[in-house]
């Protein structure tokens, strides 16, 4: 977003809420603060006030469309908004998403107005007992999520695989295409990893589910050891539940250790009724790394080509993917040993 728009945000948001809430009077907006969290899209928190009644929270978020890493073909703001709206009707706790705005007259680009939930996003620094309590609740929610009827929720627009074998094939095709589109120089590590993925495509999937994509700590807020808001749905997909589980494993195992992770996975399986397929999880562990690097390549592309020469784009494109690259390189090399 342009500096002039950022400076005018209080005025823009006041006018916008006034138009969207015709039954209230004297709308005002204060405390507009840029969020330091997240890496893909810029967000500002703000407080709104008005006279009269409206079924809208007064602590809100302005989420701009401008993305550092994702392209609309893979993860658009509108897609994310539609997933949030569908989830609002389920037991999955998500912040209310009120409006998706396409008219450029407001901020020069699409944006979403969303409820801002007060909660704690920390995890690594918490005592082990609290980490486990939070994760226990999280896998309860993950089990519920993986049993949602995504078709009835109107989410088949996310791209429904025709069968189990189609799940992995679809995501591999999508992200190979995205990688080739974004690469500015040859990256043999990506090519070798893609070869590994194609050789190891899972074919057996017990249930095709609504997946979140980026799962677990860092993607939710908690309070009193309960998950109160699941925040990140821009990578949502329809596919193999082992994908979400692999991402959770990737992020959480280094923090809680092997034994606790095994217990968590077993609990998920028991609650969801979905058996654990280790080969699928291994595939998605590698795929998640490939996916993360691929998304970061778009940031590198945007920065280097001048499409978006901003510091946050540089760091996401260059610094963020290193651990994923090392993991991919190691797994592919070990497989050949």
């Amino acid at each position: 977003m342009e500096l002039e728009t950022i400076q005018r945000l209080p005025e823009i948001l006041t006018a916008y809420l006034g138009e969207r809430l015709p039954s209230v009077r004297n709308v005002s907006v204060t405390n507009v603060v840029r969020s330091a969290g997240g890496g893909s899209r810029s967000m500002w928190f703000f407080d709104a006030a008005w006279e009269g009644e409206a079924l809208v929270a007064k602590q809100l978020t302005f989420r701009a469309n401008e993305s550092t890493c994702f392209r609309d073909a893979e993860a658009s703001l509108e897609k994310e908004y539609r997933v949030f709206r569908a989830l609002q009707e389920t037991p999955i706790p998500v912040p209310a998403n009120y409006w998706y705005e396409r008219d450029p007259k407001w901020a020069g680009e699409d944006f979403v107005i969303r409820e801002r939930v007060d909660g704690d996003g920390s995890f690594r620094e918490l005592p082990a007992a609290r980490q486990r309590a939070i994760l226990d609740h999280f896998v309860e929610l993950l089990a519920i999520q993986h049993n949602l009827d995504w078709n009835a929720m109107g989410l088949s627009f996310l791209g429904a695989p025709s069968d189990g074998a189609d799940c992995a094939r679809l995501v591999v095709e999508t992200w190979e295409r995205a990688t080739k589109r974004e690469l500015l120089e040859p990256q043999p590590v990506m090519t070798a990893t893609m070869a590994w993925l194609k050789r190891n495509l899972p074919t057996a999937v017990d249930r095709i589910v609504l997946g979140q994509g980026q799962v677990g700590p860092g993607q939710f807020l908690h309070r009193e050891d309960r998950v109160i808001a699941s925040l990140d749905w821009e990578s949502a997909f329809i596919g193999d539940p082992m994908s979400d589980l692999a991402y959770l494993d990737l992020m959480v195992r280094p923090v809680i250790g092997d034994e606790a992770m095994a217990a968590l996975i077993a609990r998920y399986s028991e609650l969801s009724g979905i058996p654990i397929r280790r080969d699928n999880m291994r595939f998605y562990t590698v795929f998640q790394s490939y996916w993360a690097v691929s998304a970061c390549l778009a940031a590198t592309n945007r920065f280097a080509t001048g499409e978006m020469r901003k510091l946050q784009v540089l760091t996401l494109g260059v610094q963020a993917p290193r651990s994923f690259l090392r993991r991919m390189e190691r797994i592919v090399r070990e497989a050949a040993a």
Partner: peptide, 20 residues
């Protein structure tokens, strides 16, 4: 193939020296 992957490991390491 292992030699190719060995190059990839060294290339990743070289980039890491500048980025990490």
């Amino acid at each position: 193939w292992r030699e190719l992957l060995g190059y990839i490991a060294r290339q990743t390491e070289r980039d890491d020296r500048l980025i990490n």
